[in-house]
Write a protein that binds this DNA or RNA. Structure first.
Length: 281
DNA sequence: CATAGCTCCTGACCGC
DNA sequence: TGCGGTCAGGAGCTAT
Protein backbone atom coordinates (compact mmCIF):
# COMPACT_ATOMS: atom_id res chain seq x y z
CA UNK A 1 0.00 0.00 0.00
CA UNK A 2 1.24 3.49 -0.67
CA UNK A 3 2.97 4.97 2.34
CA UNK A 4 4.97 8.16 2.47
CA UNK A 5 7.87 6.97 0.28
CA UNK A 6 5.53 5.74 -2.44
CA UNK A 7 3.52 8.94 -2.36
CA UNK A 8 6.68 11.04 -2.60
CA UNK A 9 8.04 9.00 -5.48
CA UNK A 10 4.69 9.34 -7.22
CA UNK A 11 4.80 13.09 -6.73
CA UNK A 12 8.28 13.34 -8.16
CA UNK A 13 7.27 11.27 -11.16
CA UNK A 14 4.83 13.82 -12.55
CA UNK A 15 5.07 17.14 -10.73
CA UNK A 16 7.48 18.77 -13.18
CA UNK A 17 5.64 17.50 -16.22
CA UNK A 18 2.20 18.63 -15.10
CA UNK A 19 3.35 21.99 -13.75
CA UNK A 20 2.10 24.56 -16.25
CA UNK A 21 -0.45 22.31 -17.96
CA UNK A 22 -4.02 23.52 -18.49
CA UNK A 23 -7.06 21.49 -17.53
CA UNK A 24 -9.21 20.44 -20.47
CA UNK A 25 -11.69 18.19 -18.71
CA UNK A 26 -12.47 15.82 -15.88
CA UNK A 27 -13.77 12.25 -15.95
CA UNK A 28 -15.24 10.66 -12.86
CA UNK A 29 -15.60 6.92 -12.23
CA UNK A 30 -17.16 5.34 -9.19
CA UNK A 31 -17.37 7.42 -6.01
CA UNK A 32 -14.21 7.69 -3.96
CA UNK A 33 -14.06 8.38 -0.26
CA UNK A 34 -15.61 11.83 -0.52
CA UNK A 35 -17.35 13.82 -3.26
CA UNK A 36 -15.11 16.02 -5.39
CA UNK A 37 -16.63 19.11 -3.81
CA UNK A 38 -16.85 21.17 -6.99
CA UNK A 39 -18.65 21.00 -10.29
CA UNK A 40 -16.13 19.22 -12.58
CA UNK A 41 -16.66 21.70 -15.40
CA UNK A 42 -15.43 24.46 -13.10
CA UNK A 43 -11.95 22.94 -13.25
CA UNK A 44 -11.69 23.42 -17.01
CA UNK A 45 -9.19 26.01 -18.28
CA UNK A 46 -7.42 26.24 -14.95
CA UNK A 47 -3.60 26.14 -14.97
CA UNK A 48 -1.95 23.39 -12.94
CA UNK A 49 0.88 24.25 -10.54
CA UNK A 50 3.66 22.23 -8.94
CA UNK A 51 2.46 19.29 -6.86
CA UNK A 52 3.42 19.22 -3.20
CA UNK A 53 3.12 16.54 -0.53
CA UNK A 54 1.96 16.67 3.07
CA UNK A 55 2.07 13.30 4.82
CA UNK A 56 0.47 10.89 2.38
CA UNK A 57 -1.59 13.63 0.77
CA UNK A 58 -0.70 15.38 -2.47
CA UNK A 59 -1.79 18.92 -3.23
CA UNK A 60 -2.30 19.83 -6.86
CA UNK A 61 -2.73 23.59 -7.23
CA UNK A 62 -5.23 24.82 -9.80
CA UNK A 63 -5.15 28.50 -10.69
CA UNK A 64 -8.09 30.67 -11.56
CA UNK A 65 -9.77 30.37 -14.94
CA UNK A 66 -9.57 34.08 -15.48
CA UNK A 67 -12.10 34.44 -18.25
CA UNK A 68 -14.92 33.19 -16.08
CA UNK A 69 -15.93 35.45 -13.27
CA UNK A 70 -17.42 32.62 -11.27
CA UNK A 71 -14.11 30.77 -11.29
CA UNK A 72 -11.89 33.72 -10.51
CA UNK A 73 -10.59 32.09 -7.38
CA UNK A 74 -7.70 29.69 -7.36
CA UNK A 75 -7.75 26.44 -5.43
CA UNK A 76 -6.52 22.92 -5.78
CA UNK A 77 -7.14 19.23 -5.44
CA UNK A 78 -6.12 17.24 -2.41
CA UNK A 79 -5.30 13.69 -3.43
CA UNK A 80 -4.93 10.58 -1.31
CA UNK A 81 -4.12 7.09 -2.57
CA UNK A 82 -5.85 5.19 0.21
CA UNK A 83 -4.38 1.74 0.32
CA UNK A 84 -4.71 0.56 -3.26
CA UNK A 85 -4.49 3.76 -5.24
CA UNK A 86 -1.93 4.82 -7.80
CA UNK A 87 -1.52 7.89 -9.95
CA UNK A 88 -0.23 7.98 -13.49
CA UNK A 89 0.32 10.97 -15.73
CA UNK A 90 0.39 9.86 -19.34
CA UNK A 91 0.50 11.89 -22.51
CA UNK A 92 -1.98 9.55 -24.12
CA UNK A 93 -4.35 7.78 -21.76
CA UNK A 94 -6.43 4.73 -22.65
CA UNK A 95 -10.14 4.71 -22.05
CA UNK A 96 -10.79 4.49 -18.30
CA UNK A 97 -10.91 0.97 -16.91
CA UNK A 98 -13.12 -0.44 -14.18
CA UNK A 99 -10.83 0.89 -11.42
CA UNK A 100 -10.02 4.26 -12.94
CA UNK A 101 -12.08 6.68 -10.89
CA UNK A 102 -10.64 10.08 -11.63
CA UNK A 103 -9.09 11.56 -14.77
CA UNK A 104 -7.78 15.10 -14.94
CA UNK A 105 -7.37 15.68 -18.65
CA UNK A 106 -4.88 18.42 -19.47
CA UNK A 107 -3.25 19.78 -22.61
CA UNK A 108 -0.15 17.79 -21.69
CA UNK A 109 -1.77 14.49 -20.81
CA UNK A 110 -4.09 12.84 -18.36
CA UNK A 111 -3.54 12.44 -14.64
CA UNK A 112 -5.37 9.27 -13.66
CA UNK A 113 -6.20 7.83 -10.25
CA UNK A 114 -6.60 4.06 -10.33
CA UNK A 115 -7.90 2.64 -7.07
CA UNK A 116 -9.61 -0.78 -6.87
CA UNK A 117 -10.64 -0.43 -3.24
CA UNK A 118 -11.63 3.22 -3.48
CA UNK A 119 -10.26 4.29 -0.09
CA UNK A 120 -8.54 7.07 -1.98
CA UNK A 121 -9.78 10.62 -2.38
CA UNK A 122 -9.77 13.62 -4.69
CA UNK A 123 -11.18 16.71 -3.03
CA UNK A 124 -11.37 20.33 -4.11
CA UNK A 125 -10.48 23.11 -1.70
CA UNK A 126 -9.83 26.82 -2.16
CA UNK A 127 -6.49 26.29 -0.44
CA UNK A 128 -4.75 23.86 1.88
CA UNK A 129 -5.85 26.07 4.76
CA UNK A 130 -9.50 26.15 3.82
CA UNK A 131 -12.41 23.77 3.48
CA UNK A 132 -11.98 20.03 3.35
CA UNK A 133 -8.21 20.20 2.83
CA UNK A 134 -7.75 22.21 6.00
CA UNK A 135 -9.88 19.75 7.89
CA UNK A 136 -7.91 16.75 6.65
CA UNK A 137 -4.46 18.27 6.98
CA UNK A 138 -4.90 20.02 10.30
CA UNK A 139 -4.60 16.88 12.39
CA UNK A 140 -1.35 15.72 10.83
CA UNK A 141 1.85 15.43 12.83
CA UNK A 142 5.30 16.60 11.77
CA UNK A 143 7.02 15.59 8.56
CA UNK A 144 9.62 12.95 9.46
CA UNK A 145 12.42 14.76 7.64
CA UNK A 146 11.73 18.12 9.24
CA UNK A 147 14.35 19.34 11.69
CA UNK A 148 11.56 19.86 14.19
CA UNK A 149 10.98 16.12 14.27
CA UNK A 150 13.72 15.30 16.74
CA UNK A 151 14.29 13.24 19.87
CA UNK A 152 13.00 15.77 22.40
CA UNK A 153 9.86 16.40 20.34
CA UNK A 154 9.13 12.69 20.00
CA UNK A 155 9.75 12.13 23.69
CA UNK A 156 7.39 14.93 24.69
CA UNK A 157 4.72 13.74 22.26
CA UNK A 158 4.89 10.13 23.40
CA UNK A 159 4.74 11.23 27.04
CA UNK A 160 1.25 12.59 26.45
CA UNK A 161 -0.08 9.18 25.42
CA UNK A 162 -0.59 5.91 27.19
CA UNK A 163 -1.23 3.72 24.16
CA UNK A 164 1.26 1.19 22.81
CA UNK A 165 4.03 2.98 20.97
CA UNK A 166 3.12 1.24 17.70
CA UNK A 167 -0.37 2.73 17.84
CA UNK A 168 0.98 6.13 18.77
CA UNK A 169 3.10 6.09 15.63
CA UNK A 170 0.24 4.83 13.45
CA UNK A 171 -1.97 7.66 14.63
CA UNK A 172 -0.18 10.07 12.34
CA UNK A 173 -0.74 13.03 14.63
CA UNK A 174 2.78 12.89 16.09
CA UNK A 175 4.70 12.15 12.92
CA UNK A 176 3.33 11.33 9.49
CA UNK A 177 4.47 8.65 7.10
CA UNK A 178 4.99 5.70 9.40
CA UNK A 179 2.19 3.42 8.27
CA UNK A 180 1.77 -0.14 9.41
CA UNK A 181 4.71 -1.56 7.52
CA UNK A 182 7.23 1.16 8.27
CA UNK A 183 6.10 1.48 11.90
CA UNK A 184 6.87 -2.21 12.40
CA UNK A 185 10.22 -1.91 10.65
CA UNK A 186 11.24 1.26 12.48
CA UNK A 187 10.44 -0.27 15.87
CA UNK A 188 12.49 -3.32 14.96
CA UNK A 189 15.33 -1.09 13.85
CA UNK A 190 15.16 0.82 17.14
CA UNK A 191 14.94 -2.36 19.22
CA UNK A 192 11.67 -1.31 20.85
CA UNK A 193 8.83 -3.71 21.66
CA UNK A 194 5.73 -2.38 19.83
CA UNK A 195 3.59 -3.05 22.92
CA UNK A 196 5.55 -0.66 25.09
CA UNK A 197 3.40 2.14 26.50
CA UNK A 198 4.41 5.27 24.67
CA UNK A 199 4.88 7.28 27.87
CA UNK A 200 7.41 4.75 29.20
CA UNK A 201 10.00 5.25 26.50
CA UNK A 202 13.14 7.03 27.64
CA UNK A 203 14.69 10.05 25.96
CA UNK A 204 17.60 8.07 24.50
CA UNK A 205 15.24 5.47 23.08
CA UNK A 206 13.09 8.22 21.56
CA UNK A 207 16.20 9.56 19.90
CA UNK A 208 16.90 6.11 18.50
CA UNK A 209 13.30 5.69 17.40
CA UNK A 210 13.30 9.04 15.63
CA UNK A 211 16.46 8.07 13.78
CA UNK A 212 14.99 4.65 12.94
CA UNK A 213 11.84 6.18 11.48
CA UNK A 214 13.87 8.49 9.28
CA UNK A 215 16.29 5.77 8.25
CA UNK A 216 13.50 3.35 7.36
CA UNK A 217 11.59 5.88 5.28
CA UNK A 218 14.74 7.22 3.65
CA UNK A 219 15.82 3.74 2.64
CA UNK A 220 12.48 3.05 0.99
CA UNK A 221 12.58 6.42 -0.71
CA UNK A 222 16.04 5.74 -2.09
CA UNK A 223 14.82 2.43 -3.47
CA UNK A 224 12.08 4.15 -5.43
CA UNK A 225 9.26 3.85 -2.96
CA UNK A 226 8.78 0.16 -2.86
CA UNK A 227 6.06 -0.89 -0.52
CA UNK A 228 7.60 -3.78 1.26
CA UNK A 229 5.10 -6.46 0.58
CA UNK A 230 2.65 -6.18 -2.29
CA UNK A 231 4.02 -3.30 -4.31
CA UNK A 232 4.69 -5.55 -7.24
CA UNK A 233 1.18 -6.95 -7.24
CA UNK A 234 -0.47 -3.60 -6.92
CA UNK A 235 1.61 -1.75 -9.44
CA UNK A 236 3.13 -4.38 -11.68
CA UNK A 237 6.64 -3.32 -10.81
CA UNK A 238 9.56 -5.66 -11.19
CA UNK A 239 10.94 -7.16 -8.02
CA UNK A 240 14.33 -5.48 -8.06
CA UNK A 241 12.99 -2.56 -6.10
CA UNK A 242 11.58 -4.70 -3.36
CA UNK A 243 12.88 -3.59 -0.01
CA UNK A 244 13.73 -6.42 2.31
CA UNK A 245 11.44 -6.43 5.33
CA UNK A 246 13.01 -7.51 8.58
CA UNK A 247 9.78 -8.32 10.39
CA UNK A 248 6.71 -7.22 8.43
CA UNK A 249 4.87 -10.20 6.99
CA UNK A 250 7.47 -12.61 8.33
CA UNK A 251 5.59 -14.28 11.20
CA UNK A 252 7.32 -17.50 12.17
CA UNK A 253 10.36 -16.72 10.08
CA UNK A 254 13.79 -16.27 11.67
CA UNK A 255 14.80 -12.82 12.86
CA UNK A 256 17.50 -11.54 10.55
CA UNK A 257 19.60 -10.60 13.57
CA UNK A 258 19.14 -13.38 16.14
CA UNK A 259 17.08 -16.09 14.34
CA UNK A 260 14.33 -16.01 16.96
CA UNK A 261 10.97 -16.60 15.22
CA UNK A 262 9.23 -13.32 14.33
CA UNK A 263 5.92 -12.89 16.17
CA UNK A 264 2.65 -11.54 14.85
CA UNK A 265 0.17 -9.87 17.19
CA UNK A 266 -2.85 -7.65 16.59
CA UNK A 267 -2.93 -4.06 17.80
CA UNK A 268 -5.83 -1.80 16.99
CA UNK A 269 -7.23 -4.36 14.56
CA UNK A 270 -4.08 -4.56 12.54
CA UNK A 271 -1.08 -6.78 12.36
CA UNK A 272 2.12 -6.01 14.19
CA UNK A 273 5.26 -8.02 13.54
CA UNK A 274 8.26 -7.96 15.86
CA UNK A 275 11.21 -9.93 17.17
CA UNK A 276 10.47 -10.89 20.80
CA UNK A 277 14.17 -11.13 21.49
CA UNK A 278 15.65 -8.04 19.80
CA UNK A 279 12.82 -5.68 20.72
CA UNK A 280 12.58 -4.77 24.41
CA UNK A 281 9.97 -3.10 26.55
C1' DC B 1 -9.62 15.13 25.82
C1' DA B 2 -7.79 10.33 25.05
C1' DT B 3 -8.89 6.01 23.51
C1' DA B 4 -11.30 2.00 21.34
C1' DG B 5 -13.95 0.24 17.84
C1' DC B 6 -16.32 0.68 13.34
C1' DT B 7 -16.44 1.59 8.60
C1' DC B 8 -15.64 2.09 3.64
C1' DC B 9 -14.08 -1.61 -0.54
C1' DT B 10 -12.34 -5.45 -3.31
C1' DG B 11 -8.45 -8.60 -4.54
C1' DA B 12 -5.96 -12.36 -2.66
C1' DC B 13 -6.00 -16.43 -0.42
C1' DC B 14 -7.79 -20.75 1.65
C1' DG B 15 -10.38 -24.93 2.39
C1' DC B 16 -13.61 -27.89 0.34
C1' DT C 1 -12.35 -25.48 -11.66
C1' DG C 2 -15.54 -23.06 -8.87
C1' DC C 3 -17.40 -21.11 -4.65
C1' DG C 4 -18.11 -19.11 -0.27
C1' DG C 5 -15.70 -17.29 3.78
C1' DT C 6 -12.02 -14.51 5.76
C1' DC C 7 -8.70 -10.96 5.86
C1' DA C 8 -5.99 -6.69 5.10
C1' DG C 9 -5.65 -1.94 5.61
C1' DG C 10 -5.59 4.45 5.86
C1' DA C 11 -7.73 7.19 8.44
C1' DG C 12 -12.00 9.66 9.51
C1' DC C 13 -16.04 9.06 12.34
C1' DT C 14 -18.65 7.79 16.41
C1' DA C 15 -19.14 6.23 20.93
C1' DT C 16 -17.35 5.92 25.47
Amino acid sequence: MPELPEVEVTRQSFSERIDGAVVRGVRLGKPLRWPLGIEPTRLVDRPVGAVTRRGKYLWLPLGAANHRASDADAGGLLLHLGMSGSLAFNVAADAPGAHDHFDLVTDRGTLRLTDPRRFGAVVWSASQDEGMAAKLLSTLGLEPFDDSFNGPYLHAALKRRRVAVKLALLGGDIVVGAGNIYACEALFSAGIDPRTRSDRISRPRCERLMQAIRRTLQEALALGGSTLRDFRDAHGMAGQFQLQAHVYGRAGGPCHVCATPVRRIVQGQRSTFFCPSCQKR
